[in-house]
Measured scan of single mutants.
Amino acid sequence: RDEDEKEKIKEALKRGNEDKAKEIAKRANVSPEEYERLRKEAE
Rank of each mutant, 00 (worst) to 15 (best):
1 R>M: 13
1 R>N: 14
1 R>H: 14
1 R>T: 15
1 R>A: 15
1 R>I: 14
2 D>V: 14
2 D>L: 15
2 D>I: 14
2 D>S: 10
2 D>E: 14
2 D>G: 12
3 E>V: 10
3 E>P: 11
3 E>I: 10
4 D>V: 12
4 D>T: 12
4 D>F: 10
4 D>H: 11
4 D>L: 13
5 E>R: 06
5 E>H: 15
5 E>W: 15
5 E>P: 15
5 E>Q: 12
5 E>D: 13
5 E>V: 15
6 K>S: 09
6 K>Y: 15
6 K>P: 04
7 E>M: 14
7 E>L: 14
7 E>D: 10
7 E>A: 14
7 E>Y: 11
7 E>Q: 14
8 K>H: 08
8 K>E: 10
8 K>Q: 14
8 K>C: 08
8 K>A: 15
8 K>I: 06
9 I>Q: 01
9 I>A: 02
9 I>F: 02
9 I>D: 01
9 I>Y: 01
9 I>P: 01
9 I>H: 01
10 K>T: 04
10 K>N: 02
10 K>A: 02
10 K>H: 02
10 K>P: 00
10 K>Q: 02
11 E>T: 07
11 E>C: 13
11 E>R: 09
12 A>N: 06
12 A>C: 05
12 A>H: 11
12 A>E: 11
12 A>T: 03
12 A>Q: 10
13 L>P: 00
13 L>I: 11
13 L>Y: 02
13 L>N: 00
13 L>R: 00
13 L>A: 01
13 L>D: 00
13 L>W: 03
13 L>G: 00
13 L>E: 00
14 K>I: 10
14 K>G: 05
14 K>T: 06
14 K>W: 05
14 K>N: 05
14 K>H: 07
15 R>V: 11
16 G>S: 03
16 G>P: 02
16 G>R: 05
16 G>I: 01
16 G>A: 04
16 G>Y: 02
16 G>N: 05
16 G>H: 06
17 N>D: 15
17 N>V: 03
17 N>H: 13
17 N>P: 02
17 N>F: 13
18 E>C: 09
18 E>F: 15
18 E>S: 08
18 E>R: 06
18 E>V: 14
19 D>F: 09
19 D>L: 12
19 D>T: 13
19 D>G: 10
19 D>P: 09
19 D>A: 15
20 K>S: 09
20 K>L: 15
20 K>H: 11
20 K>R: 13
20 K>F: 13
21 A>H: 00
21 A>L: 01
22 K>N: 06
22 K>H: 08
22 K>Y: 06
23 E>K: 07
23 E>C: 08
24 I>M: 06
24 I>R: 02
24 I>K: 01
24 I>G: 02
24 I>A: 03
24 I>P: 01
24 I>S: 02
25 A>V: 03
25 A>D: 01
25 A>S: 04
25 A>H: 01
25 A>F: 02
25 A>Q: 06
26 K>T: 11
26 K>N: 09
26 K>E: 11
26 K>M: 12
26 K>R: 14
26 K>A: 13
27 R>S: 10
27 R>D: 07
27 R>M: 09
27 R>E: 10
28 A>C: 11
28 A>N: 12
29 N>K: 10
29 N>E: 07
30 V>C: 04
30 V>A: 02
30 V>W: 04
31 S>I: 03
31 S>C: 04
31 S>A: 08
31 S>E: 06
31 S>Q: 06
31 S>T: 13
31 S>H: 05
32 P>A: 13
32 P>V: 10
32 P>K: 10
33 E>V: 07
33 E>R: 05
34 E>I: 04
34 E>D: 08
34 E>S: 03
35 Y>D: 00
35 Y>F: 15
35 Y>L: 07
35 Y>Q: 01
35 Y>M: 07
35 Y>H: 00
36 E>Y: 03
36 E>M: 07
36 E>K: 03
36 E>I: 05
36 E>W: 04
37 R>K: 10
37 R>I: 08
37 R>A: 09
37 R>S: 07
38 L>Q: 01
38 L>A: 02
38 L>K: 00
39 R>P: 00
39 R>L: 06
39 R>Q: 06
40 K>V: 13
40 K>Q: 15
40 K>P: 01
40 K>S: 12
41 E>P: 02
41 E>F: 05
41 E>L: 09
41 E>H: 04
41 E>D: 08
42 A>Y: 06
42 A>T: 07
42 A>D: 02
42 A>M: 09
43 E>L: 15
43 E>K: 09
43 E>P: 03
43 E>W: 15
43 E>G: 08
